[in-house]
Design a protein around this nucleic acid. Structure first.
Length: 327
DNA sequence: TAGGCCATCTGGTCCT
DNA sequence: AGGACCAGATGGCCTA
């Protein structure tokens, strides 16, 4: 039962393919890292099994401790051919395992490209990719079920729920939110999420064009930098219990916001080499009204998710929207 | 240098 | 018997 991925040429690399000639296995470089010394391990195994053979061949029916030897199937003698066979099978198993993990990583890469914040230069870790994908699915499901358009801040918060601080900063940066204000504003989250638009809290002191113009004291000078508690805000918007709230909140190490001078591509867009400074934005599409959602659900293929994110030299409706808040 | 992330090896278990 | 899957162990690389 071989279920190796068949669509990926990397996986089917002949060096590791299942049709790899066995005669070559002995010469094959098992690993580039060789965390274990193969020969030592194998010879150790052989020694063990040789001793077992010796044990089996004792005539007195006792083991080395003088106790009666266990009943049961006698171990087969480790002949040279058998030892070789064990070696080959172990190498084949290693190859399969390696390919399996490559397939898993390829699938994870595919997932990275469809979550809202994709970067070739700063990849999300495996766990963060899975968390963000879960958050993304959750957010989209809620949008579909409620027909409401969440504000951008809430959407970002949902995406970042349970993610590490650097990743949160990355996502916020992708969406041109100021990560620090985004996070520290949680201190005032009651006000932010109980009446006035969250945009106000974020953008009254900051401009989104990358020029930070605080109108008051520095955020850093006033408030400590600490992780954001997403759950309350999440539930305030989605009117349901966040699936993450039952689990311990991420309490990872704090780190300063990153510089967004990498190359990011958001939502299905392959990153292109940009030597100069690039900026990120979102195409902040309107959620169709409930009627059109249900219409779409009935078969129309014209359903657009509200946050189809694009970047660089394109026109960004969200930018105007955000600027409207500033003005 | 410590910690996070990752790739790989390995042995055990389950399944066909 | 053999392949898939899994988790633990280990060591390399990178970054703060």
């Amino acid at each position: 039962m071989l279920t190796l991925p068949f669509e990926d040429p990397v996986i089917m690399d002949t060096q590791f393919g299942t049709n790899f000639p066995r005669d070559c296995i002995g010469e094959m470089k098992v690993t580039k890292q060789e965390p274990f010394k193969k020969e030592e391990t194998l010879s150790h195994t052989m020694e063990d099994e040789d001793s077992e053979k010796d044990e089996d061949e004792r005539e007195d029916g006792q083991d080395e401790n003088g106790l009666p030897r266990r009943r049961g199937p006698r171990k087969k003698k480790m002949t040279k051919a058998r030892v070789d066979r064990v070696k080959v099978r172990r190498m084949e198993a290693n190859t399969r395992e390696r390919n399996r993990m490559h397939g898993l990583n390829n699938a994870l890469d595919s997932l990275r490209k469809v979550v809202p914040c994709y970067s070739k230069t700063q990849k999300l870790s495996k766990i963060e990719t899975l968390r963000m994908a879960k958050n993304y699915i959750w957010a989209l499901s809620e949008i579909l079920s409620t027909g409401k358009r969440p504000d951008l801040l809430t959407f970002v918060q949902t995406l970042c729920k349970g993610l590490s601080q650097p990743t949160t900063n990355l996502v916020a940066g992708c969406l041109q939110l100021n990560a620090r204000n985004f996070i520290t504003d949680q201190i005032n989250s009651e006000a932010s999420f109980s009446g006035r638009s969250p945009y106000e809290s974020v953008y009254t002191t900051y401009h989104s064009q990358g020029v930070v113009t605080p109108s008051g004291p520095s955020v850093d000078a006033v408030k400590p930098f600490r992780p954001f508690n997403y759950c309350s805000n999440y539930e305030s918007f989605y009117e349901s219990v966040s699936p993450e709230c039952g689990s311990p909140q991420f309490d990872g190490p704090l780190s300063p916001p990153i510089n967004f001078n990498g190359i990011f591509s958001l939502k299905h867009e392959e990153p292109v080499e940009y030597g100069k400074s690039c900026h990120y934005s979102t195409r902040y599409c309107a959620v169709p009204p409930r009627s059109s959602i249900s219409q779409s659900a009935r078969g129309s293929s014209d359903l657009h998710f509200p946050y189809d994110i694009h970047l660089r030299g394109q026109f960004y409706p969200v930018q105007e929207e955000l600027n409207t808040f500033h003005n």
